[in-house]
Nucleic acid binder design. Structure first.
Lengths: 169, 169
DNA sequence: TTTTTTGCAAATCGTTTGCACGCTG
DNA sequence: CAGCGTGCAAACGATTTGCAAAAAA
């Protein structure tokens, strides 16, 4: 008896397939630049911005223009493979949308570390709020800014106060 | 027996007094521009951005430079009289911090209306999450994007999808 | 070969800054 | 009259755009 064909046989790079399908569906072209950008993003484990991604591609020997990086990031956000969230900065940050998990963020104002968390009861509560208000939720963002264990004792109160005022949510 | 002197006797423009106290505490100066900006903000009832505020001041006959508007907004945020939150746009939005109430936002992606809500149990839940993670919260932002009752039936699905991708949280 | 994508450089947009002058304390 | 605050215009930084050349379908 052969292995069950419905079980994925260690699907090589689901994200590449998803992106290809998306491009085909929009009659867009599958280019080397687009695929390299996607692969690089999914090789990373954390948040990044367009500039960092552009720099990383350059160190990998792929000198892709900033314009193309921005245009491709837009496509990837459109098809759900990448998420955008500023994390309090005034410019855009991104992260690969591994699996289909959703999560929110704790952001340390001192060291900049970002901690992800997911609480089903938080989602449920939000849905309840929306239902009460007859509002149809499509997207949400919860960001909690503060100090992580490592920083809580050593952070300078004044510089933190300044940072709080500059948060861009 | 005279009235209890600790009870405020209908304080005229608490916010002006708070701002004055803040300026004095920082050895900053109480100027006409600063006071006009504060008064104009507290006369408004909704969210606004720097450009709108600048324009409104101009129609009021006060031609205050954009630079001063930005500098004063920063001061007001620092002293807690004004709150900053982009509401999903890539530039800063502000709102007067009437009383000391805190609230979160529901933002309609079709008509742009903003609905405020406050749920104590949501705050409690967030505190619980932070305690579990040993994270000291200093500020948070919850924004729920979607469609309000008036728009839920008439919004164009494609343009909404585009807007979701452009949200800047 | 038709259509889309790319890279480049210029343009844009919100915001910040340096500086000379003006006003507040 | 000593500092701060102001307006101006230039500088900024992230992102977007028009266009001609290059690559994918």
């Amino acid at each position: 008896m052969s292995p069950n064909p419905t079980l994925p046989t260690r699907a090589p790079s689901t994200e590449a397939h998803r992106f290809e399908a998306y491009l085909r569906s929009k009659k867009l072209k599958l280019t080397g630049e687009r695929m390299e950008i996607l692969a690089t993003i999914f090789r990373k484990d954390s948040h990044f911005d367009a500039e960092e991604l552009h720099a990383e591609l350059k160190t990998l020997g792929r000198d892709i223009s900033r314009a193309t990086v921005y245009r491709t990031l837009d496509l990837l956000v459109q098809c759900g493979l990448v998420r955008k969230s500023s994390l309090g900065s005034s410019h855009a940050n991104y992260e690969a949308a591994h699996e289909n998990e959703h999560h929110d963020h704790l952001i340390c104002l001192s060291c900049g570390k970002v901690f992800e968390f997911y609480r089903p009861d938080l989602e449920t509560l939000q849905d309840a709020i929306c239902q009460e208000r007859k509002f149809k939720p499509l997207h949400h963002s919860l960001q909690i800014f503060g100090l992580c264990v490592d920083c809580v004792d050593k952070a300078d109160e004044n510089s933190i106060r300044t940072k709080v005022a500059q948060i861009h949510t």
